[in-house]
Amino acid sequence: MRRHASAIAVHAILGLYTLLALFPIVLVVMNSFKAKRAIFNTPLRPPLPMNFDPVGYTKVFGDSSLPLYYLNSITVTVGTIFLTLLFGAMAAWALTEYKFRWNTLLALYLSVGIMVPIRLGSVAIIQLVAELNLINTLTALVLVYTAQNLPLAIFILSEFIAQIPRDLREAARCDGLSEYNIFFHIILPLIRPAMATVAVFTMIPVWNDLWFPLLLAPAGGKQTITLGVQQFLGQYITDWNAVLAALSTAIVPVLLLYVIFSRQLIRGLTSGAVK
């Protein structure tokens, strides 16, 4: 009996917290499909034929730039993940495999980036990006995000590479593979799980970031979806249908992806990478 009661209490707490976590999201998505009157009079009622009204969405998609902003976000995120994984894995390999004089010093140099947020260098980043003529380009965002994510990526991948049995690399050397081939044909395929973890760590903050898009690419059709939604909300602040629809278009794709990949994602987060 006591076991039963405590199980109920545990489920009650977890259930209530789950409701609290979901409530705002559900509320926004639900009401985005309703007529204005229904939004205000019966906010807790789900969208039904009698109060259905997609006017918000017509407005959101009438503003034809949102699909473009999505594309921008995807480009920036994929580009960042690609460069972070490639450069990160290469550096991690060199740092774990080759013994040279400033090996430890370099590792220390890289670890600065784990502790110090790159945002604090924003003043100089803007000046630098302006000098390189990269203001309002996605390239600027990819480079900055890659610099931001590289240290942690190198750290995680190094730990993983260090666990690959030495024999494997020695065997490859005996087979006459060059160092480049060992890396690209033996090491890279073996550290795929760790790369998935790094990809997860990289993806979420890059996709959701507001700061650098605001600073480096605030206009010229180069906005990311996060900034684009923020700007859209600013313009239509009094139009509740449009606001709710814009929020929903930002929420739903991310949540769909999340639900599909949540197992891998949580596994990535719990893979002991953060020690």
Binding site: L106, G113, I118, S122, V123, V144, E179
Partner: peptide, 30 residues
């Protein structure tokens, strides 16, 4: 060996130094 190190470490160090460490130092200097 040196060429190997430059090949593997070069890209990461370049991007990291230019877009992370340099801006932080430049900000302090600024």
């Amino acid at each position: 060996f040196l060429r190997l190190l430059v090949f593997f470490l070069g890209p990461a160090l370049l991007v990291y130094s230019v877009f992370s460490i340099y801006p932080l130092l430049a900000t302090i200097l600024n």
